[in-house]
Design a protein around this nucleic acid. Structure first.
Lengths: 212, 212
DNA sequence: GTCTATAGACCGATAGAC
DNA sequence: GTCTATCGGTCTATAGAC
């Protein structure tokens, strides 16, 4: 059997209380890094500070991750992947594009607002444009393309530039990242989900209540 | 008379060709910093690299700016101020809220896409949350409030949560920042201005062609 | 107004003990 | 699996010459 998270098989036991009691050291590092990267940015977050937040020494990070970039890469991919999977399932199955778009927007907003940290902020870190994050960027581009496809299929007939419309819906959804960062009294997630889904459907020119 | 930009009254003459021939050294520093902060982020941009880009030595920056933060603060405030001025004029004068919102969205998108560098990216730098940038944050918050006011006044009667609607229009407009960063073949500015203004009016529930 | 030189701090990563 | 110790590099900012 693999060892339980809180009973490692080697190494000196850690001193302080841990922030995620039932998590592996690797998960604790990812959680601490997520908080710090979101709050201070990637470049401004030292590996020393990550380690200190977890309660280990700086050098011990390198047992779990090859380098600092690997930590960010793992966070990015874990963040976009569930939404991408959901989006591509929706686009491949749902015969009603407006209903599928509604579902995708609701799901995406729910994930962005429900995450323990506002990890959507990581998408905009300048470092993400560099090579170690190519896989994440490709996955995110696939998500954007799914938004384009669904928006184009759901758009009213008198609307043109459907690629731009899809990008605008994508941007509208991700604007909740900035709202979560900047607004101290953000509306509750369910309310924001309703507002953003309704806004997205008006944006593409589809009625909120589908004709039956 | 004050000295011409290209004939300073003291100091060793600079060696290489300058990037902005008719600008003061101060303006050249701001321009180089804007490009580098946008491309690599604030923390990852060293004062050495800024100086090298301008064609001076690292220490010479400190004749023109007290520290690195001051350079970013000046860039941020110069970026938001024209749009804020325009927005508050519109909100105070225009009797037709949908027309005013249309005008503001068009102006804002035009500024974001027309700037020499994609300086809207600077808004999202994590460092902006710290103290030296408080004045910028206040000005940006006033811009957001103007969007809320105009969107609420322009919104169709059957739409509620008008504050959220205003924030979503604000987010929709600023999503062109990410589009400019991520899309290699971005639509021309005029086309994007038309698409975003039309999308914003649909989002608030106002018809693109005003009744009358 | 730009230069040289440098103080003083912090950084990511590696080696090797336990 | 975590530790100590440390290397080589980079950083911002200041002092003072010209």
């Amino acid at each position: 059997m693999s060892p339980s998270p809180s009973t490692p098989t080697a190494g000196r036991p850690r001193s302080g209380a841990r922030r995620l009691p039932d998590a592996t050291a690797r998960e604790e590092i990812l959680d601490a890094a997520a908080e710090l990267f979101v709050r201070r940015g990637y470049a401004a977050t030292s590996t020393r500070l990550i380690a200190e937040t977890v309660g280990i020494r700086q050098a011990s990070l390198y047992y779990h991750f090859a380098n600092k970039e690997q930590i960010l890469a793992e966070l990015l991919e874990a963040t976009v992947r569930p939404t991408l999977t959901h989006a591509e399932e929706l686009a491949g199955q749902d015969p009603d594009p407006a209903a599928a778009l509604h579902d995708l927007v609701k799901y995406d907003v729910g994930v962005l607002l429900g995450a323990r940290w506002n990890v959507g902020i990581l998408y905009a870190l300048p470092e993400v444009a560099t090579e170690p994050f190519t896989r994440f960027r490709r996955e995110r581009e696939r998500l954007r393309l799914t938004y384009r496809t669904l928006a184009a299929a759901a758009a009213a007939a008198d609307i043109d530039d459907t690629d731009i419309i899809g990008d605008l819906v994508f941007g509208l959804v991700e604007s909740v990242i900035e709202m979560r960062r900047e607004l101290p009294d953000l509306a509750p997630p369910e309310k924001l989900q309703r507002a953003v889904t309704a806004a997205a459907l008006r944006l593409v020119g589809a009625a909120t209540n589908r004709p039956g």
